[in-house]
């Protein structure tokens, strides 16, 4: 670096800050981007699996994808019917 460059220099080495900010925001946006596409399909496939064991309908299953301080939480809740009756063995085996 020349003397004049040194005198002219004003900038701070901020590339590291840019890199870290981008890493976080890009990761977050990528995860949000994927969500709407696979969630409905995952929900219906999960319903098929759960149906093998208990009688539930699709409204009994709720899936939420949430962001919580840097973590992503996939929350799945299934409201089981009264008595938790198992399905008949012929459908369970099929």
């Amino acid at each position: 670096m020349g003397i004049l460059d040194f005198l002219k220099r004003k900038g701070e080495p901020t590339a590291n800050v840019a890199r870290e900010r981008l890493r976080i925001i890009v990761a977050q946006e990528r995860s949000n981007r994927g969500a709407p596409d696979y969630l409905p399909m995952m929900r219906s496939e999960l319903l098929e699996v759960i149906k093998k064991y208990v009688h539930v309908d699709i409204e009994a299953i709720s899936i939420k994808l949430e962001q919580d301080s840097g973590h992503e939480i996939l929350e799945l809740s299934v409201a089981l019917p009264d008595g938790k009756a198992p399905v008949k063995s012929d459908t369970a085996a099929g």
């Binding site: 901020t14 590339a15 890493r23 890009v26």
Partner: peptide, 18 residues
């Protein structure tokens, strides 16, 4: 020149982020 003094994202930075 700006990459060398840490003022600009480098080729490697951009490749890694994307």
């Amino acid at each position: 020149a700006r990459v060398a003094i840490g003022e600009m994202l480098s080729v490697k930075d951009v490749e890694e982020i994307l």
